[in-house]
Amino acid sequence: MAAFRAQGLAKRYGNVTALGGVDLEVGEGELVGLLGPNGAGKSTLVKIACGLVRASAGSAEVAGAPAGSATARASLGYLAELFRFPGWYNADELLALHQRLAGSEGGADERAELLDLVGLSEAKTRKVEDMSKGMQQRLGIAQSLVGKPRLLFLDEPTSALDPVGRRTVRSLLEELRRRGVSVLLNSHLLSEVELVCDRVVILSKGLVVAAGRTEELARPRGVEVDTDEGTKLFESARREDAPKIVADLVGAGQNVYGVRVLETTLEEIYLEAVEGETS
């Protein structure tokens, strides 16, 4: 059974079509990246999955239960794109509140562990209103993990984080993968998604325009060699052809200063998929 499955999911706000029939699946223990330009419908999809927004058509299931039902909500963790916590709570109290709401029996140990995971142990008693934006986002991530959900929806979890914070989240995601937690990650940071996700889905104007395993999407694009005569591109060559190319060039009396095996990056795939959208 898939952790999350959307079929023909559509959402209209008045005459704006946010989602135009999306099929998407997150397998058990899978990390899926959801990409797309601003307004593509990524947040809308996640909000439907969490029961915040009602779909206009199609269906969405979380762990086999209809999205929005209490069972579905009990099995997921959610970090909203735009959220705020009441300013007068401190980090520990906020997590305690969410433990109560989620029915988690983790107690102080769970709270300490979560704060440690997101690098907020030091700020345990700091009030939310005295936290920087990035600290609040870290707290938001900790909040989404309360109660050990089997499925996580993270809507741009690193948008306010510093480089170290992003790294922390990346290793956190890898740790979650080890624990078998399924994750749907919305992000604009392609390199980040490329590094941690098993699969990516690219949305544009409410439709899926590309999807696949990260390594399948990356196609070979040739081998590039720096020589005395400048940079030469061997378009049809692959990684295994590189030694021969170099040997041939050296045999022909040229000096070789550098060799690069090229692959399409996620960025190129992305730009191709959402062509005309982003400019």
Partner: peptide, 14 residues
């Protein structure tokens, strides 16, 4: 509108 409600509503209490 301020994003205070969403994290609470998603919890199973409903």
């Amino acid at each position: 509108e301020r994003g205070l409600l969403q994290p609470l509503v998603v919890r199973p209490v409903g």
